[in-house]
Amino acid sequence: MHIVVSIKQVPDSAQIRVHPVTNTIMRQGVPTIINPYDLFALEEALRLRDAYGGEVTVLTMGPPMAEDCLRKALGYGADRAVLLTDRYFAGSDTLATSFALSQAIAKIGEMFGPPDVVFTGKQTIDGDTAQVGPGIAKRLDLFQLTYVAKIASIDLAAREITVERRCEGGTQKLKSRLPCLITMLEGTNEMRRGSIEDALCAARSRIVKWSAAEAGIEDLTKCGLRGSPTVVKRVFAPTPRSQKAVQIDTAEKTLRDLADELIGAIFTRQPALEPELAFEAA
């Protein structure tokens, strides 16, 4: 089977700092990583390939340096990597991004065989929208299976797939058809350590690089800023609360006295809470 995994290179958000005066993101020196949610999608794709045979193609859209994350994916064992990079894509929102990626996936399908499953992560850690996966599904007319916790079975002959998907208050078991798009839930598997052969292969592999034109995109008005219906008008820092916390003085007090004092302060501020808590605790 042919599986396409769409991944994104993101700044390691744990290390993002905001300039205290200009309120701009200080990107310099912030390391980039594969969006952590995408690793669950990639691992699941590799497992399907190992079980059913076939190939895994990883795809990303981004600046030329996004090649790093594709090499990493090849190191984990992906068979092929495609980098979609063009300045026409700059400023894409989720609608423009899903357009470009779906065009590239269609092109990948033409060149390397139509995909049976397209995977994405649940969301990215920099945008957190969870919109690009459903966008790709809609544009390519793939059956959309989001928040998938487990792929229960695939019947390639019947083109059927059964999955367990996370939903509000429980898990839904769904039967659908290939080709489908799956957004993989986090914590559902653990990324393998790539083999030595994969590492060597990753270093040697040529990464397929496509401009918009090379990916077969004719309508550039659907790309980048021009193809994005949303406009970011203002970026600003959250207003700090004017008052800091009232500190309970800890000097020369037993823990017991401190605890009593804290509880007293809680119930002074929220008198209605005490009878409620007493009722709950009973």
Binding site: T94, P134, G135, T146, C167, T230
Partner: peptide, 23 residues
Amino acid sequence: ATTLGRDLAGSVATTLLTGLTAD
């Protein structure tokens, strides 16, 4: 922005080709 709402909003906005702002 529940699992249901996000699953639905993404495909509706793409079909309508309009802007969607999450969370």
